[in-house]
């Protein structure tokens, strides 16, 4: 199989007195699409945020493409260009156009000349279906469009892996599809992806592996088939019952 892209070893994370992650180990290979599911508050987003050090870890180790993320000697800004992040609330920069959102990283971080960055930016916006919205500000875009710009922004640094933190949870139901379509396309192109989501159909269709996190530990993991068709764990069965009921 391929190279290990992300390796999480015995991750613990506490916020004050509450331990939200109680020893998670996980290894993600290049080109793999891993979907993390679990109830809200189970710690799944926190795992994702620890991977690019948006949260400090309490103990354990996280290696991204050979770099120890939480080692103070590691250039964390470099790690973050290798592991892009897409947020639930998009977090586009409201004072910049879609194109400026996408080109900021290449220009400021990579030192790419503006014109080249704009060519790259336009091609990425075209890829997510928003070429004609390049000069619109985020306030002029729908939620689905904003999230697609955010994906283009992450892609602009040619990351080796993209982390999606509930990318469709803040969207109106009719806008979810357009974002999932872009994510599907990325998966088909071989992008390594870690996706925290409640979209079970996406998990079933696109994931190579599904991980069910419950109360801060990995409760069950496996191929979507085994997890969804034949959930052995009672907690997972209960969770799926609740989620799929609404679908």
């Amino acid at each position: 199989m391929g190279n290990v892209m992300i390796s999480i070893e015995n991750l613990h994370k506490r916020f004050g007195d509450t331990e939200v992650i109680k020893g998670i180990s996980l290894s993600i290979e290049q080109g793999e699409v891993v979907v993390i599911i679990g109830a809200s508050g189970s710690g799944k987003s926190t795992v994702l945020r620890c991977i690019t050090r948006l949260e400090e870890i309490t103990s354990g180790r996280i290696i991204v493409d050979g770099l120890d993320v939480h080692d103070p000697k590691t250039d964390i800004n470099y790690v973050r260009t290798e592991a892009g992040m897409v947020f639930q609330n998009f977090n586009l920069f409201p004072h910049m156009t879609a194109l400026e959102n996408v080109t900021l990283g290449p220009i400021k971080v990579r030192g790419v000349p503006r014109r080249d960055a704009e060519t790259l930016g336009l091609s990425l916006l075209e890829k997510v279906g928003l070429a004609e919205r390049a000069h619109h500000y985020p306030s002029q875009l729908s939620g689905g469009q904003k999230q697609r710009v955010a994906i283009a922004r992450a892609l602009a640094l040619s990351p080796k892996v993209i982390l999606f933190d509930e990318p469709t949870s803040a969207l109106d139901p009719e806008l979810v599809g357009e974002v999932l379509a872009v994510m599907r396309q990325l998966a088909n192109e071989g992008m390594t992806m870690v996706v925290v989501t409640h979209e079970m159909s996406f998990a079933r269709d696109v994931a190579d592996r599904v991980i069910f996190i419950d109360r801060g530990v990995i409760c069950e993991e496996g191929s979507p088939d085994t997890l969804f068709t034949n959930p052995s764990n009672p907690r997972l069965r209960e969770f799926l019952g609740k989620v799929l009921e609404g679908a």
Binding site: N91, F93, G105, L157
Partner: peptide
């Protein structure tokens, strides 16, 4: 919003 700092840091900005 805190997310703005996180988004900036996430594209590798200092």
């Amino acid at each position: 919003e805190k997310g703005q700092m996180e988004a900036g840091r996430s594209i590798g900005l200092t």
